[in-house]
């Protein structure tokens, strides 16, 4: 199983560069961008969903390969919300508990498209290298 714990550190450094948003937008770095992309993707696939749901979905869709730890998930959610890519709202969960639901915004959708394209290129490139030899 591949753990994404490593993102925690990267996230922190990202926070410190909030002022640089413009340059960040087109040049999101790989590790950092990946979790964000996964979250955005999860939200786009399942509609409004709470944090716990996102972690369950990612685990399920990756067939238990990726497990997003809470220490990475929530900072990422807060960050994405600050970027304006996702929105949040309090709602009632399936088991009648108050829970915070996240939803993809319009600019989040755009960001997801952009990042998917990048990812496509990147994975093709990485695969080319890995299969070359």
């Amino acid at each position: 199983m591949l753990s994404l714990t490593i993102y925690m550190k990267a996230n922190l450094s990202h926070v410190e560069h909030l002022g640089n948003m413009k340059s960040n937008k087109n040049k999101t770095d790989l590790l950092q961008g990946t979790l964000d992309m996964l979250i955005l993707k999860a939200l786009s696939r399942s509609g409004p969903i709470h944090g716990y749901g996102i972690s369950v979905q990612i685990r399920k869709w990756s067939e238990d390969v990726l497990r997003v730890e809470q220490g990475s998930l929530y900072p990422a959610l807060y960050r994405l919300e600050e970027q304006g890519w996702i929105d949040s709202e309090w709602g009632i969960s399936e088991n009648k508990r108050r829970a915070k639901y996240y939803r993809l915004t319009l600019s989040g959708k755009k960001q997801l498209e952009e990042e998917s394209a990048n990812w496509e290129r990147l994975s093709v490139a990485v695969n080319l290298i890995m299969q070359a030899g």
Binding site: L12, V15, Q70, G71, Y74, P75, Y78, E82
Partner: peptide, 17 residues
Amino acid sequence: TFGGLENMKEITRDARG
């Protein structure tokens, strides 16, 4: 699995700006 609750809050708070 969750890790230290307070620690988590601290990290999340940092992310909050």
